[in-house]
Write a protein that binds this DNA or RNA. Structure first.
Lengths: 247, 247
DNA sequence: CCAAAAGTGTTGAAGTTACACCCATGC
DNA sequence: GCATGGGTGTAACTTCAACACTTTTGG
């Protein structure tokens, strides 16, 4: 690596992030609106940008997400590379690139990441070229800039697959949560109903949640017990070869 | 995409392939020896090279694999992108790059693929800068050029995970095979013994294998029935939501 | 007749599914 | 006292894990 390359942009490689959030009723994705370009409607896109020459891919994804939304230090995992040569060739995208990039014609391969955040802890704030940052329910997402809709779909599938075998869902919840919230989260991500009693029994038997000495307050129904994720028990479980949460 | 870019190399992006094969007793990976560079031992690497500017990633992986080994049109699936800025900085690798690449100092992000082949159908033959192409048992693989050992490990893990839920193992076998061969394949990939009777029962109950009217001949023991993979039944199985082969 | 791998059933344990009612709270 | 969501147990069924002997062939 030449030292002259430090913090120069790599014009061929970008990182894009599919950030999932959960508001206790819906699964949402964080999208940005870019500044409008003459003649084209505002369009939504995933937060993403070119990486630096001397930058590791994972670091780049973190940095770019932070620059565009203010989010920092969150669960982030690679989805894969997307490099269809036509991925930047929609007219509206070309106009935007022309306004923003040094080499707007360059073919760019993007490395996609997905991440999970607790929406209450993080208030994303648009900055850099992002005009606004907003949470959109996954079912309302249709067209996105570039090939971002494809990337979003692949990331969502990856999330669905992964949550069946790994307790990554905890990243979408606050530190303390109720079993009903966890239950709802699984139903929303998997897109189907799960039996309440069976769900609770499984989570408790595996001992990956731990009851706290605290209950909901001020709710107009029987107050719910709070739980937290027990990481030690989970790690042990995985090390012993268990990898099927069976949903 | 500028038309001047047609078939120019993209100096920042490469594709590498982890090609798995199975000889009915061991799982092997196809590696190439590159031409020796002064002062450094020959070293083994994954088949891989820079992509073209106008080339889709999947197509590039296919082309590169074909150029280096003669293999064509095989199961190939993306593992992910590897882009640690230090990945090309071992002295021996730098010397080799200097001899082969136009821009040997360039930082390259590689997109890794893994693929499965029936070793009997394909006889890989080294060409281009590959001096030899050879099948190495996975347990004998230690050091590889660049970050290829890491890539190999990630690909192997992906194969292990995937074979638990998808019948991709059939790509490693001839069209007709015996249940013992299939059984052995699963044991080798998963790295543990599987009960013979339980294994057969499961495969037959799921109806993803279909018995042929043909038996082994010339073997000094009870001849084994041949089977083939039943893709229709498998597809239906998946569509009905079954995704746990339970190994 | 011997060596080698193929093929075959049963049983007990564990896990999964389906299902309905009482409880604690705020208003 | 009523509306709301929280919390609980059981029985039928399915799946899984463990285990040993007979069969067919070539030499």
């Amino acid at each position: 690596m030449n030292s002259k390359n430090k913090h120069q942009l790599n014009p061929r490689i970008s990182a894009d992030c599919v950030v999932f959030g959960f508001d206790f009723s819906q699964l949402k994705v964080l999208l940005i609106e870019r500044e409008q370009v003459e003649g084209f409607d505002i369009s939504l896109s995933l937060p993403g940008d070119l990486i630096f020459e001397d930058e590791d891919l994972d670091m780049a994804a973190n940095r770019i997400l932070n620059e565009l939304t203010g989010l920092n230090d969150i669960f982030l995992e690679q989805v894969g590379a997307f490099g269809n040569p036509d991925r930047l060739s929609k007219a509206s995208d070309k106009a935007w690139l022309k306004a923003v990039r040094q080499k707007p014609e360059e073919r760019v391969v993007t490395i996609a990441y997905y991440s999970l955040v607790n929406m209450n802890n993080y208030q994303p704030q648009a900055s850099s070229f992002a005009k606004t940052a907003c949470w959109i329910p996954v079912h309302e997402i249709s067209e996105l800039a570039f090939d971002h809709y494809t990337i979003f779909q692949v990331a969502l599938k990856k999330l669905k697959d992964k949550i069946k075998t790994q307790p990554i869902g905890f990243n979408l919840l606050p530190e303390k949560f109720t079993l009903s919230q966890l239950h709802k989260l699984y139903e929303v991500i998997l897109g189907r109903d799960l039996d309440k009693r069976n769900f609770r029994r499984k989570m408790l038997k595996l001992k990956i949640v731990e009851s706290l000495d605290e209950k909901q307050e001020g709710v107009p129904h029987k107050p719910s017990q709070f739980f937290k994720f027990n990481e030690e028990n989970y790690t042990q479980l995985i090390q012993n070869g268990y990898d099927n949460f069976g949903f």
